[in-house]
């Protein structure tokens, strides 16, 4: 498999804190790759560096064979790498459906001068159908017309994932997708992620829930104090003494 994403030696300090220190990762195309580590290990910061929401102090990021660390975040998203947020961000005063529609790329009418074009309505109708299909998948179709601000924490996480899917990405970065989601739904979501992967999407998943990591991931990377600790197949990583120590020691 070719590498869809390869990041090398990323560093970021906040004052004297080295949040991410020489961390690297590779995500093969078509894989579900896990990123784990104790609280404060630097996982979320690492996502921010990959997507350029925070500019790294140093390091390289290649996506789909192209260096991206110089690109603004929206350009990275347009290339097909979409990130989600650990604290899910719902657009409160937009409906759930509008939230979903925002995710679609290259919509007719996204440019000011296209707003009057007659094709807008048709394009939007198709996108709405697509959005409803995804909402049904994640068990949120009955909420489509509600304001997103009224969603629960778990529902917001689901909405965020659905919104990212609307953009037909090559790679989705999920920051703790299972946090705050009820166990039955977690199983469902894992099922959907597997299916989306079969459709050709790749995932990089931060998760504290080890069941999710074990059932989903092809390979797991462990971050501790901003640096790579070990990486390998989930079963191996789970029993690695270094990993156990990092978790217990923190």
């Amino acid at each position: 498999m070719t590498d869809l994403l390869r990041a090398e030696n990323l560093c970021k300090s906040f004052g004297s804190i080295k949040a991410v220190n020489q961390a690297s990762i590779t995500v093969p195309a078509g894989s579900i790759t896990g990123l784990i580590g104790p609280n404060g290990a630097g996982k979320t910061t690492f996502f921010n560096l990959l997507s350029n929401f925070i500019v790294p102090d140093q390091g390289q990021v290649m996506f789909n064979g192209q260096p991206i660390q110089q690109l603004p975040p929206h350009r990275i998203a347009r290339l097909g790498m979409v990130r989600t947020f650990q604290v899910a961000k719902a657009l409160s005063r937009l409906s759930v459906l509008e939230n979903m529609l925002l995710g679609a790329q290259d919509q007719i009418g996204e440019k000011m001068w296209q707003a009057w074009m007659p094709q807008v309505a048709k394009d939007q109708k198709q996108l709405k159908e697509k959005a409803m299909t995804i909402l049904t998948d994640i068990g949120m179709d009955h909420k489509a017309a509600d304001f997103a601000g009224g969603l629960s924490g778990g529902q917001r996480k689901l909405l965020e994932m659905g919104r990212a899917l609307m953009s037909d990405p090559k790679l989705i970065l999920l920051d703790e997708p299972a946090a705050g989601v009820n166990p039955r739904l977690i199983d469902d979501i894992c099922g959907h992620i597997q299916r989306w992967r079969k459709d050709g999407m790749s995932f990089l998943v931060i998760e504290h829930n080890m069941d999710v990591i074990m059932s989903l991931c092809d390979r797991v990377w462990v971050l501790a104090e901003g640096s790579n600790l070990v990486d390998g197949p989930p079963a191996k990583v789970q029993n690695d003494p270094q990993v156990l120590e990092a978790y217990l020691g923190s």
Partner: peptide
């Protein structure tokens, strides 16, 4: 509502 969201979804 929150400009990080459209930014993450490819809007300039």
């Amino acid at each position: 509502e929150d400009e990080e969201v459209p930014k993450a979804l490819g809007k300039n």
